[in-house]
Design a protein around this nucleic acid. Sequence first.
DNA 1: AATACTGAGTTCATAATATGAAGTGGCGAG
DNA 2: CTCGCCACTTCATATTATGAACTCAGTATT
Lengths: 266, 266
Amino acid sequence: MTPTGHIRSLDKAVDIIEMLAAAPRGLSVREIAKALGFNASTTHHLVSTLRGRGFVDQDPETRAYRLGYRLVSLVNEFVSEADIYAIGAGPIRELRDRSGDTAYLTVLQDREIFVVFEATGVNPVQTRRPRPPGQSCLHGIASGKTLLAYLPDERRAPLLTSVSLARFTPHTITTPHELEMELAAIRAQGYALDREEWLVGLACVAAPVFDRNGACVATASVAYPAAQGERRDALIGMVGETAARISASLGYVARGEDAADAARVA
Amino acid sequence: MTPTGHIRSLDKAVDIIEMLAAAPRGLSVREIAKALGFNASTTHHLVSTLRGRGFVDQDPETRAYRLGYRLVSLVNEFVSEADIYAIGAGPIRELRDRSGDTAYLTVLQDREIFVVFEATGVNPVQTRRPRPPGQSCLHGIASGKTLLAYLPDERRAPLLTSVSLARFTPHTITTPHELEMELAAIRAQGYALDREEWLVGLACVAAPVFDRNGACVATASVAYPAAQGERRDALIGMVGETAARISASLGYVARGEDAADAARVA
DNA sequence: AATACTGAGTTCATAATATGAAGTGGCGAG
DNA sequence: CTCGCCACTTCATATTATGAACTCAGTATT
């Protein structure tokens, strides 16, 4: 169970940080110690060390501890400097390792889909075809449909009217109405499928990646042989987890209602 | 020097986290160990423990370590749930303890200034006066001027035209032009002063608090006897630090140019 | 007003554990 | 093929985190 060289005191410190993160109003040493089953003295030493580094703040009057400004600013500086590629490559490779399929990280640039990173899998699927020049394929692949689905209305509308809904296979969506229905379905379920719409024999699953402002800035996706239809649900799960993880690394927080929470006042 | 019960391994882990936060592209175990002067094995144990908790991510191919999604999401959840009061009260109390003066945390609600939290100091200053009903005092106090100064133009303009620039003392700013000049100066220097503009004998220093979107959502301020003019510069420093710290806790990152960095692609 | 709680922070002997030198295995360069 | 580099593991040992008991201060109870 325990990996080699697990450092206990650090593990405890992480427990404390996790606990404090879930308690915006702050906690006393005693509360932490009791909840986590630590000795009060040990807890105090740990918290005090964290406080010395600004990872934890203490209210000088109530003596309650709370997540510290240093930790918050550290993470936020990291998030604002990190780019999609640096953060996404690792999880996409893990997705490839878990699924065995080729996994992709894609973004929308201008009106073209762009593969930021690709981790080639061991399962053999043909995923490339001669690219008709000037023809966008946003409507024919899972990642393209995902990027379209989560685009703000004012950007999606012009794109939809100008994009040619070229047919690639018998399954390609070729009418604006069908496409709108499909995009709505994608938003409702949180992932997109490609059922041999771009290349016969090729199936895909894609899920949206959000940044800290809740904008869909990328997709995670895998391509697998359409013949292995029974793997679909498992892949949906994996792709969703991967996308959620990259989103979290970008500072995305799933919100209940709106984003105004952050600025609310007691 | 070392506070009681300083836990070394945790301190080292914090060093590692700080280092990783400054390296969005990731670092190898060796690089970390060399830079921090740790044994490679020790470093590996620490990093491995952090990885086990998701505080650090490892690229499965390059094996480079990077700040982990769990840590990022933890902090961002904390930030979006925490409110100004919970985060600001501690630092404001510390400001009071450092300065000896009464310290305030204020916000703008509708068109009125509202004291979210007040830490009463030991230095005696009269800070209250009979409040003329219906009369706003945004233009007469340091925190009010700060809130006005950092308001987006479209919100400031209507407020400035509707606010009555009532005179409270001989030093009160009473013309729209003077006020505009003052607000510009406040934005340029990053803090505001009140030179007996509201109450004779009362001086104030205020600095803006920003949230993660860069909006000024509050101010930190202190009130001190105008007779102690020589303390002004020291107070400006303290108030500025306090405000910066609260801003950092709210997820604010001072940005070089614009806020689009977060969404940039490699 | 005196007493008993409760909780933060400290102390210190000791058991527990992080440490780091040396070693393994895997990968890439020459 | 060999060498060197690096992530990772091992394990004996010295370092260090641990926790029972304590102090101190504030607050509730009698």
